[in-house]
Amino acid sequence: MITAGMDLGSKFIKIVILKDGEIIARVKMLSGFEQEVTANDAMKEACEQAGIESDAIDRIVATGVGRSIAPFAHNKLTEVGAAARGAIARLPETRTVIDVGAEEGRAILITPEGKVRDFAINEKCAAGSGTFTETMARALELELAEFGQLSLKSDKVIPMNAQCAVFAESEVVSLLHAKTPKHDIARAVHDAIASRIVSMARRVSVEKEVLLVGGMAYNVGFVASMKRTLEMEIHVADEPDYVPAEGAAWTAYDKASAI
């Protein structure tokens, strides 16, 4: 049986194809302004990678902020449901999923079966999202990867006063003018976003094991800040941004198997 999950995020479209529960293709493309066109291209590439024709897929489930325009999807799934199902497939002991993407942050409490017990979302404000980090990296004239790495060099705690990304940008510039080393600013930024995500997660409570997914989990500086702020060990998914797309593919698999 072949099933596929597509995650139409605000920044990237991700597609995962499963064959009898094994991943046979994974594709990621910048969403761009015409998501539907990108989704078609991404699906074509995923099928090529899997070595199958697109009509060989038994079931497709779409998730992500753009899921309503997803072409050729049989079912739609919320981002929360997708992250939960994907997390349990990656690490069955997961009880709390923290998913931080480009424009949204989510904390999800799940049952051993991968069902959602409770969740909290930040989608109104860039302060708890990947965009915040990108904006700050730009203000510091650093590449994203470099930005995360650099923050590990700092052992200083500089509190950021601003919550809003727009205000934080000016604060970062003032810190630069005050000759604050870039690595200390980098850490301050990652601590700030981690504290926002953690306070959101604590609203639903944080239970072991914790799995960090979504594109922000690539950022080593953010991961370090999360561990410090949560004061506990957390698991970080490999290729973390594919987890919700995998969750969608697994949901397609569950649905197709149930018939």
Binding site: K124, C125, A126
Partner: peptide
């Protein structure tokens, strides 16, 4: 979008 950063995009 409420957020200026998101409103920009």
């Amino acid at each position: 979008s409420t957020c200026v950063v998101f409103a920009k995009s």
